[in-house]
Amino acid sequence: MTEYKLVVVGAGGVGKSALTIQLIQNHFVDEYDPTIEDSYRKQVVIDGETCLLDILDTAGQEEYSAMRDQYMRTGEGFLCVFAINNTKSFEDIHHYREQIKRVKDSEDVPMVLVGNKCDLPSRTVDTKQAQDLARSYGIPFIETSAKTRQGVDDAFYTLVREIRKHKEKMSKDGKKKKKKSKTKCVIM
């Protein structure tokens, strides 16, 4: 069974824990209790493949930012979460993405942009803004509501699919490099 290491990042209060708990335990946590770091595991079937999701729910508070490099190193894919009623959390996505790329030393890291709290009427981040940002990053965008469960499975499952595509691409690139290195030079 394939294991996928997913990391949920975003500013404090955007609903990272609520999304994760909704996926794992099928219930909505409405009281806000700032996370330092929590880890969850769940076995699911995605596109006919049974897999184990190892999900790291991270601290959004700035005082825990020193811990970010460590979990970013171990993560295979990242859910970059903002709240649709919090423009600052949307603007912060850029910083999370840049930090992930720096730590992973790669421009090509599996990510999904997630606009959470889409059940709320007080939207300050337009869907088109988020779609445009995701398009500019070359990553999928999904709106979710941890409260109603809308888009929750889709967000995590899409990230797994992005990781699969990335692994497939990397193995193809690896095979191309191996083929090239088999060419021999004969000096007579």
Rank of each mutant, 00 (worst) to 15 (best):
K177F: 06
K175W: 05
V152G: 07
K165A: 08
T148S: 13
V160Y: 04
L159V: 06
E162I: 03
I187D: 15
V160C: 04
V186C: 13
Q129D: 14
L133R: 03
R149A: 09
D153S: 12
Q131Y: 08
D153E: 13
G138A: 05
D132I: 05
D126T: 06
L133P: 01
K172Y: 12
I139T: 04
R135W: 03
K167N: 12
K165E: 06
I163Y: 00
T183H: 06
S136V: 10
V152R: 06
F156Q: 00
V125H: 01
T158L: 06
V160L: 05
Q150W: 04
T148P: 12
I187C: 15
I139K: 01
A155C: 10
Q150M: 04
L133M: 12
R164M: 10
A130Q: 04
G151Y: 09
D132A: 08
D154R: 06
K177Q: 10
I163C: 02
Q129N: 11
D126G: 07
F156M: 09
K169L: 13
S145E: 12
R161E: 11
K128P: 06
L159C: 07
Y157F: 12
Q129C: 13
V152F: 14
K169P: 07
K169R: 13
E162K: 05
I142R: 04
E168A: 08
K165Y: 02
K177R: 07
V160K: 06
I139Y: 06
K177A: 11
Y137I: 14
G151M: 08
Y157V: 14
G174L: 13
T183E: 15
K182F: 03
Q150E: 12
D126P: 04
F141A: 01
G151P: 07
K184G: 10
V152W: 15
K167D: 05
T158C: 09
G138E: 05
I139E: 02
E143D: 14
A130V: 13
A134E: 02
Q131N: 07
K172E: 09
D126R: 03
E162L: 05
T127V: 12
K178G: 11
F156T: 02
K177S: 11
K169V: 09
T127K: 07
F141D: 00
G151T: 12
T183G: 12
I139D: 02
E162V: 01
A155Y: 01
R164D: 09
V160T: 03
G138V: 01
R135M: 12
I139F: 04
A130F: 15
Q150A: 13
K165D: 03
T127I: 12
K169T: 09
F156Y: 06
V160E: 02
D173P: 02
I142V: 08
Y157N: 14
A130M: 15
S181I: 03
L159P: 00
Y137A: 06
T127L: 11
Q150L: 10
Y137E: 06
D173C: 05
A134W: 04
Q129P: 05
T144Y: 01
H166N: 12
S145L: 03
F156E: 00
R164F: 06
Q129I: 11
T158H: 12
H166V: 07
K178L: 11
K177G: 13
K184F: 00
Y157I: 14
G151S: 10
I142Y: 05
V125G: 02
S136M: 08
H166Q: 08
V186Y: 09
E168R: 07
D154V: 05
R135F: 10
Q150V: 06
H166K: 10
V125Y: 01
K167T: 04
D126I: 04
F156G: 00
S145Q: 04
E168H: 08
I187W: 09
E162Y: 01
S136K: 12
V125A: 02
K165L: 04
K175V: 05
T158W: 06
S145C: 13
F156A: 02
K178W: 06
E162A: 06
R135T: 10
M188G: 15
V186M: 02
H166G: 08
T144E: 03
L133H: 04
V152S: 08
L133W: 09
I163G: 00
K167R: 09
F141P: 00
R161F: 00
V160D: 00
T144G: 05
S181H: 09
K177L: 14
Q131A: 13
S171M: 09
K178H: 11
D173S: 10
Q129S: 12
A155M: 14
R149V: 09
G138H: 02
D153T: 12
K128R: 10
M188L: 06
L133G: 02
R164C: 08
S136I: 09
R164P: 00
S145P: 00
I142G: 02
I187S: 15
V186F: 06
R135A: 13
D153R: 11
E168M: 11
R164L: 09
S145V: 05
A134M: 04
K175D: 15
K167L: 02
A134V: 03
K128G: 11
M188P: 15
I142P: 00
D132C: 04
T183I: 01
K147L: 10
S145I: 10
S136A: 10
T158N: 07
T183Q: 15
K182G: 11
I139S: 03
L159N: 00
D153F: 11
G174V: 11
R161W: 01
